[in-house]
Design a protein around this nucleic acid. Structure first.
Lengths: 101, 101
DNA sequence: GGATATAATATCGCAAAACGATATCGGGCA
DNA sequence: TGCCCGATATCGTTTTGCGATATTATATCC
């Protein structure tokens, strides 16, 4: 994947965004992120999800779907606010480095 | 500062951008970043600059200005290409999470 | 010309995150 | 019960992040 040092924050914002729209689980997120060019290994993704839950951005619940135990994450209010702030920072970045004022 | 885990990549992109426009030095970058809400300590900034140079995004040269030894950084071709890719990723992120398609 | 002031950069030491690889879990079904 | 398989978790090591502190280099003043 494209240099993680620059883009791992993007990945976390993607995760937040999807976890607000609907409950998501690990493997599904990995596929979704891969669609955007972010190929994370489980050794990166799962600890990231755990941290985001520990820090209050996400909450999880177990669920069995088609005989498989999944862990669905959804965003908390804190997570929603974090995404709002992220959007502001993104647009600030766009104005500065993309828009070539 | 606003949760670094999400935004440290933004900081690096800012640095690249400025180092393309003109040579920049540490303290100046810190002030510039502070303008955007990113308050880094030198213990974070300088190792970051060193890494970006080690990884080929920046090159530095010493210079004495008004009796003070500064280390000016400017972006390499690799750095320029990295910023181009960053812009693409930024706009991709905007389409996904900001534009609310 | 040695001491001092000051802007600027560098490092230290610890804690936390990142990561690929590997292991483990848990439910259905033969 | 044993096995398969989607899915999650952990292990061990390297790298990064960070505040605090130290060091460097130049000019100025006595």
């Amino acid at each position: 994947m494209i240099d993680r040092e620059f883009f791992l924050g993007f990945v976390k914002i993607h995760i937040l965004y999807h976890a607000i729209k609907e409950p998501i689980y690990g493997v599904e997120i990995m596929r979704e992120l891969a669609r955007h060019g972010y190929d994370l290994s489980p050794g990166t993704l799962y600890p990231t999800l755990h941290r985001m839950e520990r820090d209050g951005y996400l909450v999880s619940r177990r669920e069995v779907v088609e005989g498989k135990a999944r862990k669905y994450y959804r965003a908390t209010d804190v997570g929603v606010r974090m995404l709002e702030q992220s959007k502001k920072q993104i647009m600030e970045l766009v104005r500065e480095v993309v828009d070539e004022k």
